[in-house]
């Protein structure tokens, strides 16, 4: 009996160790290479259009909530985040202004500079798309990990008030083109939000009206 218990413990530890081995911390040389490739890929990206699926894990209820939609990005820091399910909601960032459109068509415009929360959300959104957070040492400290050839970078907000919302942001890149495949935002309260980007189309012409804020 004792042998069986010990065997189970060893097996379980081995499995846990194997899982943990999926991503290991990158060496300084690997880190330098990863950063260079990600930065190069980002500089080549003039625009990005994709679909996304966002899953929020609510620790207090042990439940998940999923949202889906489309995202558009232009490299002059214009972003459009368009939710379609479970309800319609659109968020447009352009030239330090934010336009939010509710399901019933109600709109509101906010100056990002007057709203701390949105400033940080926008920074995180843009960092997640173009990887700019990796070099923004004023806003984030970054750590690099690798599994096979696929990089993963964890961003830890520098500001204490932002860290109270997001403990870490994990960016999972694909070695295929060094673009972000998914983002995991870990909140200090134990909740996680995962955003997966799919059907990515690069450098297409995006209708400027999608980013218009009147």
């Amino acid at each position: 009996m004792k042998t069986v218990v010990i065997s189970i413990i060893i097996a379980w530890t081995s499995i846990a160790y194997a899982i943990a081995q999926d991503y290991r911390e990158a060496s300084p040389q690997q880190q330098k290479q990863m950063l260079q490739k990600i930065t190069e890929a980002s500089s080549r990206m003039k625009s990005l259009a994709c679909d996304f699926e966002q899953t929020k894990e609510l620790s207090i209820l042990n439940e998940k909530m999923s949202s889906k939609g489309r995202m558009f990005y232009r490299n002059d820091q214009c972003v459009r985040w368009e939710y379609s399910t479970p309800y319609a909601y659109t968020f447009v960032f352009n030239n330090n202004r934010i336009l939010m459109t509710q399901a019933d068509g109600k709109q509101s415009v906010t100056d990002v500079k007057s709203n701390n929360l949105f400033q940080e959300i926008v920074k995180i959104m843009i960092s997640s798309i173009d990887g700019s957070g990796l070099t923004d040492s004023k806003s984030f400290t970054s750590k690099f990990f690798i599994a096979g050839d696929d990089p993963m970078v964890t961003l830890t907000p520098v500001r204490k008030d932002v860290r109270r919302m997001f403990a870490t942001i994990k960016l999972f890149f694909t070695a295929k083109d060094y673009s972000v495949d998914s983002v995991v935002m870990e909140e200090s309260n134990g909740d996680n939000t995962t955003i997966k980007l799919t059907n990515k189309r690069y450098n297409e012409t995006i209708n400027p009206s999608l980013f218009a804020i009147n």
């Binding site: 966002q54 209820l61 949202s67 919302m165 909140e187 939000t193």
Partner: peptide, 20 residues
């Protein structure tokens, strides 16, 4: 997202569109 449970009463979360 809110739920009534037999023993613990109401429990729920209010999140914004981005899940914050």
């Amino acid at each position: 997202i809110i739920r009534k449970e037999a023993r613990s009463g109401w429990r729920g979360s209010l999140v914004n569109e981005f899940g914050v």
